[in-house]
Simulated assay, not measured.
Amino acid sequence: MCATAIDRSGLGRVVFALSAEQFESVKPPTPAPAPVRYDGPALFAEARRPIEDHY
């Protein structure tokens, strides 16, 4: 996606400092994502009111 955007922008040259391998070697490790709790569905009657006449 980024390469396509650069191509379509008409830029004549893109200069960058690090290769992908160099960047991977210096960036800090990504922490594990926190667990996500899902509750629901809930409040069905209230949630349907804004859209019940739309469909």
Rank of each mutant, 00 (worst) to 15 (best):
A5F: 14
D39P: 02
A47E: 11
P41V: 01
Q22A: 15
A20E: 13
Y38C: 09
L43F: 10
M1R: 06
S19D: 07
P31K: 07
A5M: 15
Y38M: 09
L43K: 12
A42F: 14
D39Y: 10
H54P: 01
E21T: 06
F44R: 11
D7A: 15
A17G: 10
F23R: 05
A34C: 04
G10S: 05
I6Q: 04
R48W: 11
R13V: 00
M1V: 07
D7N: 15
E46P: 02
I51C: 09
I6A: 06
S9R: 02
D53R: 15
V26N: 01
E24N: 13
R48D: 03
L18A: 12
P33N: 12
T4V: 10
M1F: 05
P33I: 05
S25E: 03
P28W: 03
A47C: 11
E46V: 06
V14K: 03
R49G: 03
S9G: 14
V14T: 05
P28I: 03
P50V: 02
I6N: 02
E46D: 15
A5W: 15
P29L: 01
S9N: 09
A17V: 09
P41I: 03
P29C: 04
A5G: 15
A47M: 11
V14R: 00
V26Q: 01
T30V: 14
E24V: 13
F44D: 09
G12L: 02
E21A: 06
L11F: 04
G10A: 00
E21M: 05
G40E: 10
M1W: 01
E46A: 13
A17S: 09
P33V: 04
G40Y: 05
E21H: 04
R48T: 08
R13F: 00
A20T: 10
K27W: 09
Y38P: 02
A3I: 14
Y55Q: 11
P50H: 02
F23L: 12
K27R: 11
R37C: 03
E46H: 11
A45I: 01
F23Y: 12
S9A: 13
T4F: 04
T30E: 08
A20Y: 07
Q22F: 00
E24M: 14
V15R: 05
G40V: 10
P41Y: 02
D53I: 09
D53H: 11
F16N: 12
R49E: 08
A5P: 07
D53P: 00
L11S: 06
R49H: 11
D39L: 15
M1E: 07
A3V: 14
S25M: 05
F44V: 14
L11H: 03
A34K: 08
A45V: 02
A47K: 14
D53C: 05
